[in-house]
Design a binder for these strands. Structure first.
Lengths: 161, 161
DNA sequence: TGTTGTTTAATTGTACACAATTTAATTCAC
DNA sequence: GTGAATTAAATTGTGTACAATTAAACAACA
């Protein structure tokens, strides 16, 4: 599909319509499948740690920067409080984090790793290692793609005019 | 992170552990965010058609190849009957498809587009066009990425030994 | 000061995804 | 030909995501 075919000037023939709606041409579908399939690979590796994938990335964010509020955590993870609140309550019940409402500004709830949560890091580090092994992809291969995807993340996450 | 650092031989120092667990280094997280954010962009465009994203890709698969059974459709979409059965019932209730159990082999349920479902294609074609416009990405840019992601789809979807 | 607007979490309701199981039909092995 | 194994779809139960709303706290400002 070239530029000419998809701009407003060109008439949408049946052939062009078919090409535009072909599943294999959809970037969104490729993202969607890659995301789902990779999450499926993580699930059995995370299960022994008692973590779901969302719990895992929340812990990763906290291992990088501890003691942040729900809003900040949501910015890092691209998630909102509707998803995070129940998740963080679960992590709290598992003893990995504490949730404390700030006294300076009672709107903020700060999330802090417990000792158990900090120690989990040493087991969690095995997860990406095992995954790379099981998928059998080159690491260098992935690095280039990650930086490319980060550009798309920014592009897609910013709201349109 | 280079190969040496992640293989089993190298000792996991705290620095290496940090690097391995950094959110920005995770391919899975990049896939996950790109997928979620692009789906978020599709939602308002699909809403006027009465389609969810999953309904949209199911219709795309059927516009490409009509009259296939649930299993085949699942292979195309990387979804199983647990997701598809309720989805297809909804598309049926909306008048876009019919679900008919095969007489030759009663285990199979074939999905067929109605006339209304076929006509929807002409409206749906506007969806990718509007999206490309709103995201403001080059089309060529996306094409290269799509083919790269298809390799990952295959790699990730095949089950491990 | 008091009113209005904004910010932060939490809540509510809807729609996925998927693992695991169930049911029914078909195929395979012997 | 019959019992075992396999296959396809449906069902059940759990865990996200997110839009929209609510509630409370805070900020801005006439």
């Amino acid at each position: 599909m070239n530029k000419k075919e998809i701009d407003g000037e060109t008439k949408l023939t049946p052939q062009i319509t078919d090409e535009i709606l072909k599943l294999d041409n959809q970037l969104c579908f490729a993202f969607y499948v890659c995301s789902k399939e990779i999450l499926k690979k993580y699930r059995p590796l995370l299960e022994p740690l008692g973590l779901t994938y969302t719990g895992y990335i929340a812990m990763m964010a906290l291992w990088e920067q501890d003691n942040i509020n729900v809003k900040e955590l949501g910015n890092k993870l691209y998630l909102d409080s509707g998803t995070l609140t129940p998740l963080l309550k679960k992590l709290e019940s598992q003893g990995y984090v504490t949730r404390t409402r700030s006294v300076e500004n009672e709107r903020n709830v700060f999330i802090k790793l417990t000792e158990k949560g900090q120690l989990l890091k040493n087991e969690a580090v095995q997860v990406p290692l095992k995954l790379i092994e099981s998928v059998g992809c080159g690491v260098e291969n992935g690095e280039q793609l990650v930086s490319q995807l980060h550009k798309w993340m920014e592009l897609l996450a910013k709201e349109m005019p």
